[in-house]
Amino acid sequence: MSIDKNTVEKVARLARIRLEDDKAEQLAGDLNKILGMIAELNEVDTAGVEPMTGVIDMKLPEREDKITDGNNVDAVLLNAPEQTAGFFVVPKVVE
């Protein structure tokens, strides 16, 4: 797999990361080196091996269905750049 300048720009756009004009070319090179290194892992035969999801053998912990949180509007809105009547207020986004 090889990454070109266009792919880097697209991924940056999707992730909302701003790139300086000359950065994309350089990043494409860096990323290709990283991917090349990781690609070496493909040489290992993993047929029949379950993917490992953690180093400790444990189950997904579950919660009881109880209301234990919420009713904390002030804290939730504390970092909001703008708020009105309990709402977050953001620049208009409408399709």
Binding site: D69, G70, N71, N72, V73, V76, A85, G86, F87, F88
Partner: peptide
Amino acid sequence: APNEHVSTV
């Protein structure tokens, strides 16, 4: 009311 049923998650 707005944002009452909200946790930090």
